[in-house]
């Protein structure tokens, strides 16, 4: 099976490979997939005070399509608010990368990774808000 030129491009020049500080309250980390299934994606976002995604990083264990899907996902979420990022659909990834049917699960995983990262970010933020409220109450 030949890969689309966009998949090859993302594979050869992956955007935003790396890691953000997972302990930073402004960073959300999503890890999806399993080694047994042949793909694991880690996608991280970093948001500013207004909830806009200012940085994104990924690391992926998986086939070329999985790497390309996560690379593309980091490109797309950057500059979006978390609400906007949640609107990204796997079908858009499939279309952009011309993924064949057998690789659709790679795009699903990328969408899941975005959601997992945002969920982690939000739960950190609400814990932080809760802690601040508790701290204010004890004063």
């Amino acid at each position: 099976m030949a890969y689309s030129s966009k998949v090859v491009d993302h594979y050869e020049h992956p955007r935003n490979v790396g890691s953000l500080d997972k302990n930073d309250v402004n960073v959300g980390t999503g890890i999806v997939g399993a080694p047994e299934c042949g793909d694991v994606m880690k996608l991280q976002i970093k948001c500013d005070a207004a909830g806009r995604i200012v940085d994104a990083k990924f690391k992926t264990f998986g086939c070329g399509s999985a790497i390309a899907s996560s690379s593309l996902a980091t490109e797309w979420v950057k500059g979006k608010t978390v609400d906007e990022a949640l609107q990204i659909k796997n079908t858009e990834i499939v279309k952009e990368l011309s993924l064949p049917p057998v690789k659709i699960h790679c795009s699903v995983l990328a969408e899941d990774a975005i959601r997992a990262a945002i969920e982690d970010y939000r739960s950190k933020q609400s814990r932080l808000a809760g802690a601040e409220t508790a701290a204010a109450g004890s004063r």
Binding site: V8, F61, G62, A66
Partner: peptide
């Protein structure tokens, strides 16, 4: 730590 198909692409 490396998946076979992506490795072949490399």
């Amino acid at each position: 730590y490396v998946e076979g198909e992506s490795l072949m692409m490399g």
